[in-house]
């Protein structure tokens, strides 16, 4: 058997691949959190729950309407985004003048409701979701076997992340977003409807979570609690990366996923807590986060 540092390479690359996939989800989710936080100053605790809702939306579309993976990849995030728009319009928008912690508490309550309701309806066990036909099978890369679907998840989330980065940093719409993050009052005085922008930003951020949910469905099964522990890890990712930068969120997410994968090979017992340990170390060395700015 081929080994590297005394570890079988098959196992090593297998775990690194898993880590990269987890990292893709961290990146997608922390990206959404960062976009929302920039505009609304709200930490969206419901992010993990909406990731779960995205996965369930795909599953339900298939169960009840026979709608398959590819349309669901568009429809489910749209539905989640729509839910986000309603949530922002009816509830979150009432809290902007108060302490930011109230946004956290409200979305925490929403997360409990969503997870509780889906658990009540569909039980705590997972529902399987098939891999789409076009992505069955895999590639032998020589040093490891790469299932096609997993390769697709990594590519799709990378494209989404980079596309979001481009849209925010390089387009006119992104310029509005950046400007409104900095000084919403003035942007409004230039004739731009900032409240609508805020609503759409929240919708877009949670739609990213919904998309991550659809991508995850064939890998992890569709489970009401699939987002519940994930969101806490993503919070740690956000603290580590700092919320100042979009690219920072992406890089930190992928990097920590890889690190977790590595830990699974080297010291499996610690793989669950490695992200939190990194967070503690980063807080000691650079409290604002790796890519963050001190405010």
């Amino acid at each position: 058997m081929v080994t590297l540092f005394g570890i079988p390479t098959q196992a090593l690359f297998g775990q690194l691949l898993l880590g990269l996939i987890n990292g893709s989800f961290y990146a997608l989710l922390s990206l959404g959190l960062a976009v929302i936080f920039g505009m609304l100053n709200v930490i969206n605790f419901a992010h993990g729950a909406l990731y779960m809702v995205g996965a369930f939306a795909a599953w339900l579309l298939m169960q009840h309407f026979g709608i398959g993976y590819w349309p669901a990849l568009l429809l489910a995030p749209l539905l989640v985004g729509l839910f986000g728009v309603v949530l922002e319009k009816t509830m979150l928008s009432r809290l902007y003048k108060l302490d930011h912690l109230y946004g956290l508490l409200l979305t925490f309550g929403v997360a409990l409701i969503l997870e509780g309701a889906f658990r009540h309806w569909y039980g705590a066990s997972g529902q399987p979701y098939p891999i789409p036909d076009a992505l069955r099978g895999g590639q032998n890369l020589g040093f490891m076997f790469l299932p096609n679907y997993r390769g697709w998840v990594i590519v799709a989330s990378l494209i989404t992340c980079l596309g979001t980065w481009y849209a925010i940093e390089r387009t006119r719409l992104g310029a509005y977003l950046r400007a409104a993050t900095e000084n919403p009052t003035l942007v409004q005085a230039f004739g731009i409807n900032v409240p609508v922008m805020v609503t759409l930003t929240y919708g877009f951020g949670v739609a990213l979570a919904g998309l991550a949910g659809v991508l995850a469905a064939p890998i992890y099964q569709v489970n009401p609690l699939m987002g519940s522990n994930l969101i806490v890890v993503v919070f740690a990712v956000v603290v580590i990366g700092g919320m100042g930068s979009i690219l920072g969120a992406i890089v930190t997410g992928l990097g920590l996923g890889l690190l977790e994968g590595l830990a699974k090979v080297v010291y499996p017992e610690a793989s669950n807590i490695v992200v939190f340990v990194v967070m503690a170390i980063v807080l000691l060395i650079k409290p604002a986060g790796l890519f963050g700015r001190e405010r």
Partner: peptide, 23 residues
């Protein structure tokens, strides 16, 4: 660790650390 950040970050840090205790 947590008092090194404020507000929302403080909440997220305490949450993450407690999740470590859970694991």
């Amino acid at each position: 660790l947590a008092i090194r950040r404020q507000g929302i970050y403080f909440a997220m840090i305490t949450l993450a650390l407690s999740q470590m205790v859970f694991f």
